[in-house]
Amino acid sequence: MVRGLVRKISLTWILLGSFLLLNISPALASTQSDIENSLICPACFAESMSVAACQDSTAQQIKEEIRQKLALGQTKVEIIKTYVDQYGEGILTSPPKKGFNLMAWVTPFLGIMMGGTLIYLALSRWVKVPSVKKSQAKTKPGALDDYYEARVEEEFKKYL
């Protein structure tokens, strides 16, 4: 019974913890760099370098455009949308969370969950709470047991 309880508690704990962790994602410091990181520099499709990382003139120009658009009060979503309309979804550094691309986002966590289940199943096979009695009363009591026990108590400290 205790075992079942422990199992339940640990499962709930792990589930709760993982939901909590799933919900936090690092928001970058500024909207500016957030947008720059979400777009590939149109001149560097071959290396799929983001606007933020790219140093050439096209990237500089786009950075400036983003800055102006932000100053005009456009939101992150709006700005990204203008670029997607212009260049297609290929300009995004991350696949949008819809359609087949959803696979990209879901699979890692599915994998971890499956791994977790596997570990859980393996543990429930491996965990055997042994009966306490078995190992005792094997040795016959000898006259010198006390002496040896004292010696063990003394000697193990040398190995500490």
């Binding site: 983001s50 290929g90 995004l92 991350s94 696949p95 986002w105």
Partner: peptide
């Protein structure tokens, strides 16, 4: 062909 980058 879609890119998977920093935000992902």
């Amino acid at each position: 062909k879609i890119a998977v980058g920093i935000p992902f």
